[in-house]
Design a protein around this nucleic acid. Structure first.
Lengths: 219, 219, 219, 219
DNA sequence: AATGAATGAGTATTCATTCAT
DNA sequence: AATGAATGAATACTCATTCAT
């Protein structure tokens, strides 16, 4: 008698993970109760604890598995590429693609970091840093190649990641723009943001407007 | 006889607002309890309700007051400026400046939208849209002037705002870079992201890398 | 300058009493809050305590004033009457009349006895007993005159008072029957319930049905 | 091995119901707290919610189960009887008997109607009306048979029910009168109240006393 | 005579978690 | 692997009352 691939327990665990992702994405970790989760899965509260030791454990598992998967895949995507510009475009397209496909995991891993225990938080933050490093090293490479003009590659990487990560909050697959069109738009913006331009002249001229800003925000 | 700053009630309300901002920023709305808040302010739980009818009311008030202030100030900052490039730089510097100064309010108004009641959420989202419109119209102006090269000004505005808003999550005023340096870096990135570049040639060449991405993210 | 009859304080006290009667009648003593009461009167909570030392004090005052008034008036009504039958009809009509006019006070004094403090409860119960005594003595008189046939005047009085007091829970002044019609119906029922009838024969016959009842209620 | 009566859950639910009846009877619904109830049952507050979704749900369940039981039993008691007088006596004896046995349920279902939610109140009131209908139809039958002299059977039914329901507030099983003696007294009073009597002559004579009443209650 | 602000104990209900079956 | 019943602490919010002004 062969063991069926999705035994009852395996199936239940997957159901819990999926319901957990959905609920935490929608209401947040704190606002999601184990009661709600159990009812969504169709089991009793007590049964959840056959799969996850605590609610915190569930959150961490979801975030952790996601981060490891993200790293594995970004490395697979970047492996064969050559120039910094080529690799940057691949990164941008990969990031957008993945973040649209795994919207829930991505959102949770980012916005529920606050709800992780100190120890768990460090692990997730460290994995996130690893991911950011992939982009930083592309920018470094581009600077070495002389094709990117960035004052600080770490800061630039943060800026680019913020820009890209925002997409999944507003992108609608049935909306005006296709995933590919959106990706192309952002590839272009990202490229522009790190490419040599004639901004120097411009910058000089605009310095003067700073004074106005300073007074306005000072109230 | 010293001049007391506001009556006892006014002072208490301000204390509640400030403690509320701090706590909700740190732990999130759901994870912040009225007990905690009262103890932070140094009053009894019940006294909170002399100032805010519900916990939800407190959250909404904080978010709402912030959004109105943001709009008032961005309009004051942009008023006198002329060209689209000038106005864009003013906007970027204003946004960064304000978001660093009002870190708590900004973060709450954005990340706790989920915790607002349906009705309150609509109000805040609508104000946020108003703010986004300020940037969209700058981009429109730039396109009309022929100085900006953006396929979709709304999408570009979302991208820019995401990029800028991320700053306050990592910026440290006592860190390596000053607020002004960070602002200048982002002015330059934003300008680059919307300026005519020679990306067209580049884009053609990079199209081929998409196939690699597709297979990598497909698992 | 003459002193106005209803000075501000006097007026406020009357307003509190009236609002208190209405609210306690409608929601019950426990379910009526001082906040609600103050808001109904149009003053602040604290001001209530210029008129009533405690919430309990308000309830007791309303019940006590009512009971004293009831006794004073029933005595006035009964004073001049002669025969037991005459006096009984007067009593029935008075009771119905008064209970319709002072619906709120009557209801509160009866159903909120549970909410009175031990001491206050004794006072009200004792006044109520005084009132019941008025009816008991009419029945005693009737028995002495040989016109009433009641086994136990106290029990009969309880029965009659229950019957009459129920009226105000369903009587509608704009309904099918006028107050006078209702009163006449009840005068007749009450008279019938205490008058010699030929029930003796009947009673004997019906004794046998008791067995059926006993088995039915036993489950 | 002793036979346990019901599983733990069943026993706990019964305990909650019984304690609920006792407490609500004694202090009223509003004045009974879930804390008190839990402590009376000997469980934690939270455990109550494994059995009743809300405090309101408990109240409604107690009232509803009682009303259904009352109706079922009154129908069983009345089934076989014949004449209106016979059926009326059975009704009176049944009512008194049941109301003495189920004092708590009866009292709660009547006096806590105010505390029921609108929806629940409608249901209970409707069941109570069904019960009242049993008596009304007996009076209708008696009028058809020519043995009852009632102007309005609905009003008469209300009067009789009020009279009978009051008994349980003062009856003491260890008091001067036995349950059977009390029942017989009330059978006789009820019969008298609906039977042809010579009241007509009497009534005419007493009309004059109304004037006195009117002036007395007018203050 | 009234207010505004505060108190401290209380409310019903929900929480994550445990554990014998 | 799942259940049903329980726990003990926590939740947001309301209560009657006080008191300086």
């Amino acid at each position: 008698m062969t063991r069926t691939v999705g035994s009852s327990g395996v199936r239940t665990e997957r159901n819990i993970r999926e319901a957990g992702l959905r609920l935490i994405y929608k209401h947040g970790y704190e606002a999601t109760s184990m009661r709600q989760l159990a009812s969504e899965v169709g089991i009793q509260q007590g049964s959840l604890y056959n799969y996850f030791r605590t609610k915190q454990d569930l959150l961490f598992t979801l975030a952790h598995d996601h981060m490891r998967d993200l790293l594995r895949k970004v490395d697979a995507a970047l492996k064969q590429d050559k120039t910094a510009r080529e690799r940057l475009e691949v990164f941008v397209r990969f990031h957008i693609d993945y973040h649209m496909q795994r919207k829930h995991e991505v959102f949770i891993s980012y916005s529920e970091i606050r709800s992780l225990s100190e120890e768990n938080r460090q692990i997730i933050i460290s994995l996130r840093r690893d991911y950011e490093e992939r982009l930083v090293s592309i920018l470094d490479q581009g600077r070495a190649e002389g094709v990117f003009d960035v004052a600080d590659t770490k800061v630039a990487a943060f800026g680019i990641l913020s820009m890209l990560s925002g997409i999944s909050t507003w992108f609608n697959p049935r909306g005006r723009l296709s995933k590919e069109e959106v990706s192309s738009i952002f590839v272009r913006m990202v490229m522009g943001s790190v490419t040599w331009n004639e901004g120097e002249k411009v910058k000089a001229k605009l310095r003067q407007s700073n004074a106005a800003v300073a007074s306005a925000t000072a109230e």
